[in-house]
């Protein structure tokens, strides 16, 4: 299931739909799993009336976690060595998220091969919500 340096090319991509019609319940589920109960994510009344947002929005880390699923499905379990994300736009209930990784480099360091990836996740309007990078160990 691991990727092979000999079979990868710069510019290769892998995409997955990582959320469909994201629900408020999943946002609450993430709050419970992560321990981050920030009312901006979990409390519609607070988000609208106190904070002035149109509704609750997802934790950035929920989107990063969902995007990480695309990465591990592609590079294999336990293979990531680095993963970073900037949260460039909020994710709202009802959003559909598609995550894409693009190969930017294939390296060999002391006999161990690595792939470097650009990571972008967009919503149903094509707007970027996550922009990141990842590195994974790969096979020869």
């Amino acid at each position: 299931m691991a990727l092979h340096a000999s079979q990868l090319n710069i510019g290769d991509t892998h995409s997955e739909v990582v959320a469909s019609n994201l629900t408020r319940t999943q946002i609450v589920q993430y709050a419970g799993a992560s321990g981050d109960y920030m009312p901006l994510h979990t409390d519609e009344v607070y988000a609208r009336e106190v904070a002035g947002y149109p509704t609750v929005f997802a934790h950035g880390m929920l989107s990063m976690g969902a995007t990480g699923m695309m990465l591990t499905n592609w590079v294999g379990d336990g293979r990531l060595t680095e993963y970073s994300a900037r949260f460039t736009r909020q994710v709202w209930p009802g959003d559909d998220l598609t995550a894409t990784a693009t190969v930017t480099a294939i390296d060999s360091i002391e006999g161990q091969h690595f792939v470097q990836l650009d990571v972008v996740t967009v919503n149903q309007h094509g707007q970027e919500v996550i922009n990141g990078k990842a590195t994974a160990r790969i096979d020869p």
Partner: peptide
């Protein structure tokens, strides 16, 4: 599998906030 047992997903350490 290669990792030989259950492992945590990549962003799991966020859950440290519980503690």
């Amino acid at each position: 599998t290669e990792v030989g047992g259950i492992i945590a997903p990549p962003t799991f350490v966020q859950a440290a906030a519980q503690y």
